[in-house]
Design a protein around this nucleic acid. Structure first.
Lengths: 160, 160
DNA sequence: GGCATTTAGTTGAAAGTTGAATTAATGCGT
DNA sequence: ACGCATTAATTCAACTTTCAACTAAATGCC
């Protein structure tokens, strides 16, 4: 895909430090958030799915849109939905307007589950991450990662 | 584990912005790095394993140490080693000093594989991430994430 | 209307990951 | 030197994710 350029531009010490700090902290951070969330029998991905559903109108969303917004593949969402359906947190309803489609609908039980998990998760995000950032840090982080994501969005054609 | 505190401290707008920017950009970033690396038939985790091996003395490391430094479970490393061994990139050698143990040893072929992959991976880290950060951004990021990791290391007992 | 193409979503098999159980060797205390 | 707890590493079974193939409905086009 990319044309191989001649001499690789290796990372400077400064770049290396930034990259390694970011990647190692992030892996550890994600691991601990996952582990915290697992006490509610949720993965981060499942949480994201439920969270997105929970603040959609009617707590329902089309499968494809949900997959896209939760940044998981359609196939993965299908499989997870099957599991979460078994757990009674969501159900699927046929879509009248487009009969190929389905609505992913959050149940009352699912709502209760996320309402229960959310405060702990937020607390976890705090104690693991946010509480260690100053207000200025937070602003800089937001700026930096918004920029990074903007660029990625441009570079990386969304296929799903 | 944690004692449930009374009222959840929800995220302020600033905190929310930082958190969401970070998490969404990170997911996209990791996806694109993985996807770039996959052209060399490597995942980030496998790359990390090989990279760590490649700059150990003799290009060999004990399984447990390798697992720890690459931040994957021993079980997972065992499985990956089996696959990478089949690919001819590594082999395992019995350890004389401690006969419960094994050395993970990088082969010449493995060395060639990572030497080939590294420039592309570095380029990928650049174009996806580092090139969009100013020198100052890089320094701040390093500082922030070093701090975050330090705290995590303290909080989260390493079990593996 | 009729035919090709695209889109929504699911499925099944293969590959990857996890966590607990297992095997075997080491080390420590008395 | 004995027994017991610990450590190194693998294995098994359950679960999750991916990838490609599939079904069925919608759309576009002439």
């Amino acid at each position: 895909m990319a044309i191989k350029s001649s001499a690789p531009r290796w990372l400077s010490a400064r770049e290396m430090k930034a990259w390694r700090a970011y990647i190692f902290a992030s892996r550890r951070l994600m691991d601990s958030l996952e582990s915290d969330l697992s006490e509610h029998d949720l993965s981060m991905a499942d949480y994201e799915v439920l969270a997105q559903l929970s603040d959609s109108p009617e707590r329902r969303m089309r499968m494809s849109e949900l997959a896209q917004i939760a940044m998981i593949s359609k196939s993965r969402l299908s499989h997870r939905m099957k599991v979460m359906e078994k757990a009674g947190w969501v159900k699927r309803e046929e879509c009248v307007e487009d009969r190929r489609g389905y609505w992913a609908v959050m149940t009352e039980k699912g709502w209760k589950a996320i309402v229960k998990a959310a405060p702990d998760h937020v607390e976890s995000v705090r104690t693991r991450f946010l509480d260690h950032l100053s207000a200025k840090d937070q602003e800089e982080l937001a700026k930096i990662f918004d920029r990074v994501e903007g660029n990625l969005r441009g570079q990386y054609a969304d296929e799903n």
